[in-house]
Computed example of a mutant assay.
Amino acid sequence: MKKSIILLLAMSFILSSCVYSLFPIYTPDTIRYNQRLIGTWKGPENELTFKLNNKEDTSEGYIMTIIDSGGEYKFKTFLVEIGNEFYLDMFPEMGDLHHALEVYAMNLYPMHTFQKVSIKDNQLSITTFSLERLSELFKRNQIRLRHELVSQNGDPEDAEVVITAQPKELQKFIEVYSKDESVFDQTVKYTRE
């Protein structure tokens, strides 16, 4: 039980600045493969490893493993091209989650998260969306995208945005906001090992 709580806290910390979506941002025509993504990337606080999910079929995406002081976390990950930008769509590997959280896993619904990504030489840059800024835009109805405001304690001020839009709608949203620096948060840089 103690391990379950620690894993849940670690997962929420890792994904704390992510935008959550019930649906992926990819469609079959937007999934891309980039050989340069494969390998291990060292960051300031963690390490990322990308492997092909299925060596026979690159359209099945990658397995991304995040390793930090709290443990190892696996995500099924797709490289997605929207407009002229690339994004990672991440989805937790449920085998690990179900095993670690036992009974709690039955009450959790895995969400897709996504970040902007670029590779230049031996550097991988991952830029997260600003959850605070997007929440503000959603709450003011300045973003027209299907979503729900979900609060664990019933207080609307503490509500988080869960996007419920379908993939094509998400792609249009991302393309419109991809050049707006105000909707992005920090960029974390990783160096190939």
Rank of each mutant, 00 (worst) to 15 (best):
E169Y: 13
L52Q: 13
K120G: 01
D158F: 00
N84K: 06
D155A: 03
Y177L: 09
N84R: 03
R140L: 14
N107I: 00
Q115V: 07
L108V: 11
I6F: 07
R192P: 09
K3L: 13
S17C: 04
W41C: 06
S125K: 11
S69Y: 07
E72S: 15
T164R: 06
V150P: 02
E102A: 12
V162Y: 04
M64R: 13
Y62T: 08
T187Q: 12
I143P: 10
G95E: 13
L88Q: 03
R32Q: 15
H147M: 12
R192M: 05
E45Y: 11
P28Y: 06
S12L: 05
S130A: 08
E181R: 13
M111D: 14
R36P: 02
M90W: 00
S16A: 05
G43L: 06
Q115C: 02
R144A: 10
S12H: 06
E181V: 11
T30M: 03
Y26D: 01
F184S: 10
Y104M: 15
S130D: 13
A100V: 12
E45S: 10
N107G: 14
Y62Q: 08
D121P: 04
I174P: 07
M11N: 04
K168G: 00
Y87W: 08
D185Y: 10
P110Y: 01
N46Q: 13
D89E: 09
C18Q: 02
N153P: 03
G39A: 09
L48P: 12
S59G: 00
E102N: 13
A165H: 04
I126V: 15
L97A: 02
T77M: 01
Y177D: 03
E175V: 02
M11A: 08
G43Y: 01
K42L: 10
T30S: 15
A10D: 08
I63D: 09
T164W: 03
I174G: 07
V176Q: 15
I82W: 07
L15A: 05
F78G: 07
E102M: 12
P24N: 09
L88F: 07
G83P: 05
L137I: 00
K74R: 15
E85C: 01
P28T: 02
D158P: 01
K3A: 14
S125W: 00
E148Y: 01
D180G: 04
F173I: 12
D89C: 07
A100F: 13
V183Y: 03
D57L: 00
L170V: 11
K189Q: 04
F114G: 02
N84E: 12
I31M: 12
N53V: 01
S21F: 01
F78D: 11
Y104K: 11
E132H: 06
D57E: 10
S21P: 04
V183A: 01
E47M: 05
C18Y: 02
Y87R: 01
N34G: 01
I82M: 02
S17G: 14
